[in-house]
């Protein structure tokens, strides 16, 4: 196990390095620079500013500098936010995004599992069709459309929750979290339904029944854990979906999260923030995927985590 983890961590660093490199060069390939929009500056002034930030150097040199700083944990300073450090900017914005993402994921997966279980246990009844309907809605309606509906009915018409902004504490997070939860909810319910139906028809379930287990015990003690594997597989991509999904949701609800800052930075060519945020998202995803792999081994003892051949 320890060997496996060491190995995985090594690969995680390589992945991270490749992503950083690719993002850096892709960004440099775009036209414009953080200061090119400041048209009030004269060419001489521009040259001075470029020299100050090292933007006049050849791109490989800039790359080497950036990577050296990155290795020391320094993500550089922002161009648009008065030279604030990118690390501080991201940490400042992290709270709301993490709260929304986590709430959305937990809510969506929990309700999704519940719906999927009900659908599988009451196959071809009104329960099953109802759950399918919810899943289809969740998959086919984009989260931003759903968000606007929530805003209109729950905030504007019924005034239960704030329309947007991050001023009223936790209550502000409810609507965006629900909007984010719809995707994972739909995915989880479909995966659990299909897998539960398959598992419930397997031999070991018949054996469990022949021991005198009740329907509840059969479903939750025997079937559920075996039906989880496919869902766990898509949890990684689901988490990714939530992160990218939150870009749009944070815009709609005017929430000061990472996503909202990310979009702004792209518009103003703020290199260091784009790099910083991308790298942060990547690191997050890489860790989530690693955790998913570890989770496999916990759920299913047949999936051994080993170091492989020496």
């Amino acid at each position: 196990m320890a060997k496996y983890i060491t190995r995985r961590v090594f690969y995680m660093f390589i992945t991270f390095f490749l992503i950083a490199t690719a993002t850096f060069f892709l960004m440099k390939a775009l036209p414009g620079s953080p200061i090119s929009s400041a048209s009030k500056l004269s060419p001489t002034q521009l040259a001075v500013v470029e020299a100050k930030y090292g933007l006049d150097q050849p791109i490989p040199v800039q790359y080497a500098k950036y990577m050296l700083n990155l290795a020391q944990g320094d993500l550089g300073n922002s161009f648009q936010f008065k030279n604030a450090s990118v690390t501080d900017l991201i940490i400042d914005r992290l709270g709301p995004s993490m709260l929304l993402g986590t709430q959305g994921l937990v809510l969506g997966v929990a309700i999704g599992i519940l719906l999927g279980m009900i659908a599988a246990l009451r196959q071809n009844t009104i329960w099953d069709y109802g759950s399918t309907f919810v899943a289809i809605i969740g998959i086919s309606i984009p989260s931003f459309v759903f968000a606007t509906f929530l805003q209109y009915w729950l905030a504007v018409e019924w005034k239960i929750f704030p329309v947007g902004l991050w001023k009223d504490g936790w209550v502000s997070s409810v609507l965006p979290s629900i909007a984010l939860a719809m995707g994972p909810l739909a995915t989880a319910s479909r995966f659990i339904r299909t897998e539960m139906i398959e598992v419930l028809s397997s031999d070991y379930i018949t054996l469990a029944k022949s021991k005198g287990a009740t329907g509840f015990e059969v479903a939750f003690k025997h079937a559920f854990r075996n039906a989880l594997i496919p869902l766990v597989t898509v949890l990684g991509p689901l988490a990714a979906g939530l992160l990218t999904g939150s870009l749009v949701i944070e815009q709609i609800f005017a929430i000061p999260g990472i996503g909202e800052q990310f979009v702004k930075s792209i518009m103003s060519n703020d290199f260091s923030i784009i790099m910083g945020t991308t790298l942060f998202f990547s690191a997050f995803l890489i860790v989530v995927i690693f955790l998913v792999d570890v989770l496999y081994g916990i759920i299913d003892p047949r999936i051994r985590l080993s170091g492989g051949k020496d």
Partner: peptide
Amino acid sequence: MQKIRGKDISMIFQDPMTSLNPTM
């Protein structure tokens, strides 16, 4: 019936490779 199954009447199945719960 659940009180009889496994207590008074029990069953052995054909394929031992699939009749045990793999995660228990």
